[in-house]
Design a protein around this nucleic acid. Structure first.
Lengths: 151, 151
DNA sequence: TTGCTCCTCACGTCACGTGAGGTGGC
DNA sequence: TTGCTCCTCACGTCACGTGAGGTGGC
């Protein structure tokens, strides 16, 4: 296994994720998603990790509606948690560990709360739509009745 | 009851809805939300219907994530349905009625499908978060264990 | 008369879209 | 060698944010 195992071109990654190549370049510009490699000629090369990271970004964007700065913060906390595995072997303080995990847990909990809130709003909205649908059926029926009399 | 029963000033309406006055002026510019009246001196005056319409716009924007052109289309169909009541008395064709209602019903159905899809995505996302939370707890426990040995 | 809210430009911003003009890999 | 994909500017767009500078109603 090569060190720089980044086989995917920007076009492939973009199409599979349902975004434009411009979006990927913009995310790189913001420091959100740096492609793992660069081919001869300056072409961006993305790894499986990059693809997974992109999916995570798009999930937070599409599902939660966060702006890119907020997404950056969330990913940063998760990156630190992931990097902790390395640091463990080199021995960092237990207090530091606990801080990093506590931060990740707090973010996770807040996200779940926001998801629950969104679900509640959606349920409410669906009830409104159902009520509207019932009213439409009533109107349609009444017009049918009118038609039977006048038409 | 006066004809132009529009008591609310732009600042009140904006604050209650949780948007800026700029947003309301922009929606007027787009023809999305025309205030029912204008006071002496050119101040916008909003009616209860205007406030309800704004709530509807913000729901479609926040909950569904639609752009303002799409929202305009949806409101337009609903407006036509609401205007039908008047037209009934003046006698328009039954076929025309059925067309307008069919359109409203179709939009309603598509909206409910999209709501259902969003709910499914949110449930999926929540499951991911739950799995992540479980992993965090595991890591925290392991560090606690390490600490018990090394610390 | 004094604040507070309103008004209209008009430029700025975020998250990209969309060419222009050119280079590089199968 | 020919397409196709990639590259970097750089201006455009959508949905507003944010002052500038001024007028109007309690």
């Amino acid at each position: 296994m090569a060190r720089t195992d980044a086989p995917y071109r920007i076009g492939e990654v973009a199409e599979r994720a349902g975004v434009s190549t411009r979006t990927l370049r913009y995310y790189q510009e913001l420091g959100l998603l740096d492609p793992a490699g660069t081919s001869s000629g300056g072409n961006r090369r993305y790894s499986d990790d990059d693809v997974a990271r992109l999916e995570r970004i798009l999930e937070l964007r599409n599902v939660m509606g966060f702006d890119l700065e907020r997404i950056h913060d969330i990913l940063h906390a998760e990156d630190r948690l992931a990097a902790m595995g390395e640091e463990v072997r080199r021995g960092i303080s237990r207090k530091r560990h606990q801080e990093i995990i506590a931060e990740a847990v707090a973010i996770n909990r807040r996200l779940r709360e926001q998801v629950a809130a969104k679900m509640a709003v959606l349920r409410d909205f669906d009830e409104q739509l159902a009520a509207k649908h019932a009213r439409y059926e009533e109107i349609a029926e009444q017009i049918g009745a009118d038609a039977a009399v006048t038409g």
